[in-house]
Computed example of a mutant assay.
Amino acid sequence: MTTTPATADDTTETILIVNGAPVRLAGDPTRPLLAVLREELGLVGTRFGCGQEQCGACMVLIDGEPVYSCSREIGALAGRSIVTVEGLGGGRGLHPLQQALLDEQAGQCGYCLSGMMISGAALLERNRRPSRREILDALDRHLCRCGVHNRVVRAVRRAGAAMDGLVDEGTA
């Protein structure tokens, strides 16, 4: 679970845990995680937005915390657990937040939505009944030009209630 040193042919191997599975990556350990996810692993749900930690489109969970993937070098993440929007459901179908976003029709252009799902899911892991203010704070790092924030807030509340088993996911 480390980065192995460069060999004579200047390749390095980095092992990451991506969506629950170990992934061996050879090559430059300074590559951005976002590029590796999209270009090498085909996990294109994580979006490139600004490349400067300003828009939130590239958010992933690293050891359970929402983090910008555009600025994280893979070598610094060796052995760490990375969850993308594709892995939110843990292989058991849709995460309750993903379902709630569908139910609330929160996707418009969808560009910001994967990052918002990541931040919303992280919030719900800590607090299944967040206040509106807590949800807005969790989503504050996300730029959305379509204006779906109110629907996303409703979806986070719906998902939290569903996770608590208080309501049927389809009737929140």
Rank of each mutant, 00 (worst) to 15 (best):
Y68Q: 03
D140W: 05
L124W: 05
A162D: 09
P29M: 07
G45F: 02
L77F: 04
P22S: 12
E104S: 13
G42F: 05
P130G: 08
M117H: 07
T3S: 04
R47V: 00
F48H: 13
T30A: 11
A138G: 03
R141E: 13
S131R: 09
V60K: 05
R151S: 02
T11K: 12
C112K: 04
L139Q: 12
G79S: 12
L123W: 08
P5R: 13
T46H: 04
E13L: 12
D164F: 01
L113D: 07
L101P: 02
T7R: 14
V83T: 15
L136V: 08
C109K: 14
S81K: 13
V67D: 01
A122I: 06
R129S: 15
L94D: 13
P96S: 09
N150E: 14
I62L: 14
A21P: 00
V60W: 03
G20V: 06
L43W: 04
A26T: 12
L77C: 05
A26G: 11
Q52D: 13
V23Q: 13
G110H: 12
R141I: 03
P22M: 10
M59P: 00
V23M: 06
G165A: 06
E104M: 13
E13Q: 15
R126T: 12
A100G: 07
V18S: 03
L16I: 04
T14Q: 07
G56S: 05
G75V: 03
A155V: 02
V156D: 03
G56R: 01
A35C: 00
T14S: 09
P96D: 12
P5D: 14
A122H: 06
A6Q: 13
H149Q: 14
I17G: 00
T11Q: 14
L94R: 15
A122G: 05
G45A: 02
A100Q: 03
I135S: 07
L101F: 15
H95S: 04
R38M: 04
R151C: 00
N127Q: 15
I15D: 08
R92D: 11
G110D: 11
R154Q: 10
L123R: 04
V152T: 11
G20M: 11
G75M: 01
S71G: 05
E39C: 00
G27P: 06
L139C: 11
P66T: 07
H149Y: 12
R157M: 11
V44K: 12
R38P: 00
R129Q: 14
A78I: 09
A172N: 07
V148Y: 03
R80Q: 15
G115Y: 08
I15M: 11
P96V: 05
C144V: 02
G27M: 08
G120N: 07
Q99F: 07
N19V: 01
S131M: 04
V85N: 04
C109G: 11
R132G: 05
T11Y: 13
L25V: 08
S81G: 09
A172C: 10
R145D: 06
Y111E: 06
A35E: 03
A138K: 02
G160Y: 08
E169T: 09
D137W: 11
E13C: 09
I62R: 11
V156L: 04
M116G: 00
A35W: 12
T14D: 03
E169A: 15
E104Q: 15
D9A: 09
L37T: 02
